[in-house]
Amino acid sequence: MELVSFDWWLFCMRWLHILCGVMWIGHLWYFNFTQTPTVPKIPTELRPAVTKFILPEALFWFRWGAMGTIIFGLILAWMNGYLGSAIKLGIGDHSAHNTTIGLGMWLGTIMWFNVWFIIWPNQKKNIGLVQATPDEVRKAARLAGLTSRVNTLLSIPMLYCMAGVHFY
């Protein structure tokens, strides 16, 4: 395979899409499987180590992982020639492949929206980047946490569609 062939670029986009996706979903699952259940068990005086140091750094890689995943994913779908068909879930095209990847893409897009427009704005209040009253911080943390759980839920069928598309 020559270095500059179309197939190589196609693979390159898939590789970058997967790298960013692991960065994103890895952090999502870290938050939901490790951090959220463990923080309440940490003595109060030690919790700022998580909320002031680990959380801001993890949120950086989390949200930019999400951004890279959707950008490289859209380029990949466009290069594969099924972007338009997948957006309309393959309806009218009699393509189970495009229906499957389209459902995965829509689930991923909802998750990306949740990251950038619900989780991150609310986490900014939680980590002190945006001024807020203690009551606002409590509400913001709750909303960010629940939305993160929704994304964990959606990640299961999303990954079925992404990884299982070749069965269709």
Binding site: P37, G90, A96, T100, L103, R149, V150, L153, I156, P157
Partner: peptide, 30 residues
């Protein structure tokens, strides 16, 4: 009633249920 999203196990359970719905949807659409 407690929010099922407060439980990690129930979140995963709902994720599996939604996956089955997605599989049925693929077969219904395509």
């Amino acid at each position: 009633m407690k929010n099922p999203l407060d439980s990690l196990n129930q979140t995963i359970g709902l994720g599996v249920v939604l996956t089955i719905v997605v599989i049925l949807l693929i077969h219904a659409i395509a």
